[in-house]
Amino acid sequence: TEIRININGVTIHVRDASEELKKLIEHLLRLGADEKEIREVLHRWEK
């Protein structure tokens, strides 16, 4: 699944996002995570 996240005008594009990762990101956004925090989570997730 491919997702695009727009945070304050900055688009983060994620290829091959699992449903689990998608739910995690949606949850973090609801909690008010910023772009830097989302990128950090994505970076750690890929490892």
Results as ranks from 00 to 15, higher is better:
12 I>L: 03
28 L>I: 06
15 R>V: 15
21 L>R: 01
2 E>F: 00
34 D>M: 07
2 E>S: 08
46 E>F: 08
23 K>M: 13
22 K>A: 14
16 D>C: 06
17 A>E: 05
7 I>G: 04
13 H>W: 01
40 E>C: 05
7 I>R: 05
40 E>H: 06
35 E>R: 02
46 E>D: 11
13 H>M: 08
37 E>Q: 10
39 R>M: 09
2 E>G: 06
43 H>G: 08
35 E>M: 09
1 T>I: 15
23 K>L: 15
16 D>M: 09
5 I>V: 10
15 R>Y: 13
11 T>H: 15
11 T>D: 08
40 E>K: 06
21 L>Y: 02
33 A>H: 04
7 I>L: 10
3 I>C: 03
10 V>A: 10
10 V>Y: 00
43 H>Y: 03
41 V>T: 12
46 E>G: 11
7 I>K: 04
25 I>D: 00
40 E>T: 05
11 T>P: 05
21 L>P: 00
38 I>N: 00
19 E>N: 11
25 I>H: 00
24 L>K: 12
22 K>C: 03
8 N>I: 04
7 I>T: 06
6 N>D: 13
7 I>C: 05
45 W>N: 07
39 R>P: 00
17 A>I: 12
5 I>R: 01
7 I>P: 03
10 V>T: 15
6 N>K: 11
10 V>Q: 10
35 E>P: 07
39 R>S: 04
44 R>H: 13
37 E>Y: 08
36 K>F: 11
14 V>E: 02
46 E>R: 07
24 L>I: 14
30 R>I: 14
22 K>T: 15
27 H>D: 14
40 E>M: 06
5 I>D: 02
12 I>A: 02
29 L>Y: 03
7 I>A: 09
32 G>R: 03
35 E>F: 10
28 L>F: 07
45 W>T: 05
15 R>L: 13
29 L>V: 11
25 I>F: 03
32 G>N: 06
11 T>E: 10
4 R>V: 12
12 I>Q: 01
40 E>I: 03
32 G>Q: 03
29 L>P: 00
35 E>L: 14
44 R>W: 14
24 L>T: 14
35 E>V: 12
30 R>E: 13
2 E>K: 06
17 A>T: 11
2 E>P: 10
11 T>L: 10
41 V>A: 14
38 I>Q: 00
12 I>G: 02
40 E>R: 05
19 E>D: 15
12 I>P: 01
30 R>C: 06
37 E>L: 14
14 V>N: 02
41 V>C: 04
26 E>V: 05
16 D>R: 07
6 N>I: 12
19 E>P: 13
17 A>N: 05
47 K>T: 14
8 N>E: 08
13 H>P: 06
20 E>D: 13
10 V>K: 11
9 G>W: 01
12 I>H: 04
31 L>W: 07
30 R>M: 13
